[in-house]
Design a protein around this nucleic acid. Structure first.
Lengths: 346, 346
DNA sequence: CTGTTAGCGCATTCAA
DNA sequence: TTGAATGCGCTAACAG
């Protein structure tokens, strides 16, 4: 007989509260109270219940628990992509914060597809989650209705600039301002003739907002956005590399190139390195996100850091602190800001 | 009156089946059947129900549904980390496959912490999920008991080599073999004196298995593993860069360095580049994972590609096809294999 | 401090 | 083809 045999034989189906109650010699409600640390319980009773539950390997059925009480310990999280590290970090922030509170994340990945977002939000709502954390503030009317209707706490994250009325609290940064800040920085560095290399910004709305902010600020400061190169599909290092090659083929006389994000910019960096283009003298390169990889390049990438992990944490926190009792409401919008990293490529 | 006002006014609390039934003038059971496409329904009835549900914006309560029937449409997914792109890609594969089948992923991130894994698995089981997808095959006895007991479908992914009895199906690759393959490749390239730069492999068991396989094969082929440098904490580009610097300071006369993964190896690459160390002539560099970034470097990284997205998809598929009816059982273990990428750094 | 009684919203018998 | 009854496993009053 091995040590592992000491554990209880595997039951065919999950145990119920009743079986724990029977073994402990108390009622179901008592077991329920003990397990949830509610109300006054005699120490002996508590010990007996805990012992029985432990010995049987009881795992409570939260489906039933959530149905009987109100709201599940589930939080829906909707992100557009898991292709790069950005939303994985957001997710990490969310799950860590939720875990502290005993909540769990049900995730949905939209692929920047609005129709899919509708299906996903609806499916998430079906679990009657404590809240929904969703990336972005631009949604279809159907998504807006769903989210507004079900009395669920909603947190929109990543983005805070737009004219749409908020569906709930917001945690993020102004992508327009981030683009503008980079434009100001690059002009201050002496650059005048600009190019842009982007991925599919018809789907990635925040990338478009950065470009818009960048272009507007450039115009204001006397810079010229003389060429744009869009690469179909999602952002990637290879897309950035190919994009810059194409851009320079069409427009060789540029001072600086702004990329839709760091993945793209790192690709541009590699293109320069492989082709003897010196940064920033021959060409300045700038991105967005502040990924680690960009800061470990032999020449540190000029970029804007977005506090992704923190956004995830704060978003989860907003669900947790949803006006439990009285007390002042937390602000409707949390601007986490951003940090311009001067780097060495611009 | 704007267009958005055409939609139904937002109800305070979520609707129930009964309210749809009332509006459609049928019973709850009929609505339930229509919504799940079950049994014979008169076309007129179906239309009426669908219309009512649509107009009211009804979202079914899956908690109740799952409780009344058996098993939820939830699948627990346990990953060790979301620090790098690897598990984000696995997650993408899992969620995409699950979405096709109308299932959803509840995620747990262990941080390579076994105690946390226990809590997470238990919490996931509380939702009576259709199945659990978990990274790795090395778990504590408690986790093994939990997973074995509750009659849940289990898929262990990423790793297939170990002597532990399987908890369910397995989808992954042999990390020992991957390490050995790289050792063979590097020796064939003429390298003899080897170094290793790793992160915390006491927690990252698969990284350790690769190192073990690498070292064993090296011994067999006449190579020498003369120095190891471990960097505390998780893998990262900066850790790899610092690790290689430290390794070379202690042991300058190496032919080649094997890194615990691509993030680390890219860091090593940057160290070489910044210090005028030519790859592979002065020093060969090799990693594991086959990340895009490594293949976009000016000199393509020598590495082993792991089919992460595919592993995620297959893992989800294993949950879906869990012996529904008769038919032959799918194999207990799926070896997805790996691909050695010769690259240009070794 | 503890037990008993009612549902939570739905899927599933069984009748009709 | 449809409706009425029963219970999934638990929490929440309410007694005691």
């Amino acid at each position: 007989m091995t040590i592992r045999d000491e554990t209880v034989p595997t039951p065919a189906s999950p145990l119920r509260l009743a079986e724990v109650a029977a073994r402990a010699g108390v009622s179901e409600s008592t077991v329920s109270r003990v397990l949830r640390n509610i109300g006054p319980i005699a120490e002996t009773t508590r010990a007996a219940v805990l012992k029985a539950a432990e010995e049987l390997g009881y795992v409570p059925n939260r489906l039933a628990g959530a149905l009987a009480s109100t709201g599940s310990a589930l939080v829906g999280v909707v992100v557009p992509s898991l292709d790069n590290i950005v939303f994985a970090e957001v997710l990490r922030g969310v799950t860590e914060k939720l875990e502290e509170a005993g909540l769990q994340a049900v995730i949905g990945v939209t692929g920047y597809d609005l129709a899919r977002e509708e299906r996903i939000v609806s499916a998430l709502l079906a679990w009657r989650p404590r809240g929904i954390v969703i990336a972005g503030i631009d949604h279809t009317p159907r998504v807006r209705d769903l989210l507004a209707a079900n009395g669920t706490a909603v947190v929109e994250m990543m983005d805070i600039d737009g004219s749409e009325p908020a569906l709930g609290r917001r945690v993020g940064l102004s992508h327009g301002a981030a683009g503008a800040a980079m434009a100001a920085h690059l002009v201050a560095r002496g650059h005048r003739r600009f190019g842009y290399v982007g991925h599919d910004i018809s789907r990635d709305i925040r990338a478009r907002k950065r470009l818009d902010g960048f272009a507007a600020e450039l115009a204001r400061r006397g810079g010229d956005l003389v060429a744009r190169q869009m690469v179909p599909g999602p952002s990637s290092v290879s897309a950035g590399r190919a994009g810059l090659a194409a851009l320079l083929a069409a427009q060789p006389d540029l001072d600086a190139v702004y990329f839709s994000n760091d993945d793209m910019a790192v690709g541009g960096y590699f293109h320069c390195e492989a082709n003897g283009i010196r940064m920033p003298d021959d060409l300045a390169i700038a991105g967005f996100n502040g990924l680690d990889i960009g800061q470990e390049l032999p020449r540190r990438l000029t970029t804007v850091r977005s506090p992704r992990y923190r956004i995830g944490q704060l978003a989860a926190e907003q669900i947790l602190t949803r006006q439990d009792a009285a007390g002042p409401a937390s602000p409707a919008t949390i601007d986490v800001g951003f940090e311009l990293i001067a780097g060495e490529t611009a």
